[in-house]
Design a binder for these strands. Structure first.
Lengths: 261, 261
DNA sequence: ATCTATTGTATCATTTTGATACAATAATAA
DNA sequence: TTATTATTGTATCAAAATGATACAATAGAT
């Protein structure tokens, strides 16, 4: 992993200075967007974090909303700009607005570590309310493009997220809770699984999200019963046992339920 | 119901002019808060709307966030200021941020109907992102205090909400969907039921929220099984049949579930 | 051919849910 | 006083969903 210092050259500083000067004209004041990007690797649920500052700390990938841009579009654009990833289904789940959640000084300090002194009255000094989104990503598809302003990315095991900037730890916690409620529906149309997968892979994802072991046979029955899986050919993977079927999420509309008695 | 005209006296105009002038210093730019207040009356789910302008149209009760105020606190304060209702459990459920959801002109026009011409560059002309909350209210307790700037309140049947200002119809739709998902948990600690209630009253609330009939006996079994109800004395109400028990939501912590297989 | 690890399905017990029956009872009418 | 009525609380049976376990099928290794 490259330290932020290696990319802090003059070119970068110029870009940042430009950004600092044009930001107040281009972006809405006081509103930022942050995204919790979940991935799944090595049977663990992961979250994509962005390195900032030196010594490095980490935070959610985020950015600002253009004055003529829908919130949802801003979230997509920022994710695309920073990770290179496109066609992601992002879902808004929370807006963080405690008055001192980002006391401005933090952001300003961060910026100053990269580009040096900034005026007290900086646009970045203001209070920000952050609208938060989450996405489920098949992380074999994510190619985090070295990001211009804040540095690079790293996947963290959901259980080993360090102390993050601002209130981003809290935001991740809320995102996980949102994910856990009704994962069945959220997976469909998400990008968390690769296009095709085995039942075993799907089960391990559930186990990672809910952080508990599930009974294989019953899990299979349940998943098939949801009516969202399409069975494809078997997958001969060279292992010395019966080959599993491959599945994919079918496009067909599924039944909906609610929990009324 | 009093028309806005009757309250549009000089006193009011002065207050509004003052508000208009101090707003940019006091409030965060570009962020508003709106609340969907659900009530239950005549076996119908209702929503509390505020009359604005003349000819009157309706909208959600809302307001702005002080620069030194938590988002959640702002929602509470605004609700308190406008309805007089205190100690409400408000839950944030959505942030509305389409670029043209409140194209500024709408808000400015509304203000101008009340206080006359405003400058093009008005603070109110800017784009607003609205953070939305909902609450469940026992509407026998709500005493909508005649509200200063925008007029008065009216309860609307959830199925008979007129065309509202901005994107408030959409916001109410989202609020109802949020309410419907997992009502069991949302009721506890809410203010929607009165302190004590009969099983029948509770059932009628469920039927209003889910918009469907439920089977009495199974409903009762289900509710009792949740372990959140405390059975009190019987309620002798003069009706010529067996008196029902009264219940209240018990403080005791309840079991939590998740929907994993 | 036999063994091993894993997969797909079946089966039985338990729990939850849906539908229905029925006894209890508070006021009213006879 | 007794029968009537509407509603309530609980029981019961069937159907569906879930939990636990058994077992045959099979792709490759031995």
């Amino acid at each position: 992993m490259t330290s932020i210092n290696k990319t802090s050259n003059n070119e970068l500083k110029k870009i940042i200075r430009e950004f600092r000067e044009t930001a107040p004209d281009v972006y809405m004041p006081g509103i930022s967007v942050d995204s919790v990007i979940f991935g799944f690797h090595d049977d663990k649920l992961k979250v994509l974090l962005s390195q900032v500052g030196d010594p490095p700390s980490f935070g959610l990938p985020g950015g600002f909303v253009r004055k003529d841009e829908d919130l949802d579009d801003a979230a997509l654009r920022i994710l695309q700009e920073r990770t290179g990833f496109e066609n992601i289904y992002l879902e808004q789940f929370y807006t963080s607005g405690k008055k001192d959640r980002s006391n401005g000084k933090m952001l300003k300090d961060l910026m100053e570590k990269v580009i040096g002194k900034m005026p007290e009255s900086s646009w970045f000094m203001q209070r920000f309310v952050s609208v938060c989104y989450y996405a489920l990503i098949d992380d074999t598809k994510v190619k985090p493009s070295a990001e211009v302003i804040f540095g690079e990315f790293k996947w963290f095991d959901i259980n080993r997220v360090p102390k993050l900037i601002f209130d981003h730890n809290l935001i991740i916690k809320k995102a996980l809770a949102t994910l856990q409620s009704d994962l069945d529906n959220k997976l469909v149309g998400s990008n968390l699984m690769s296009e095709t997968f085995t039942m075993n892979e799907l089960q391990r994802l559930y186990e990672a999200v809910y952080q508990e072991k599930l009974v294989r046979t019953n899990f299979q029955r349940k998943m098939l019963g949801l009516g969202v899986l399409e069975r494809l050919d078997k997958q001969y993977n060279g292992k010395s046992h019966k080959a599993p079927f491959l599945y994919r999420f079918s496009k067909a509309k599924r039944k909906t339920y609610h929990r009324s008695p």
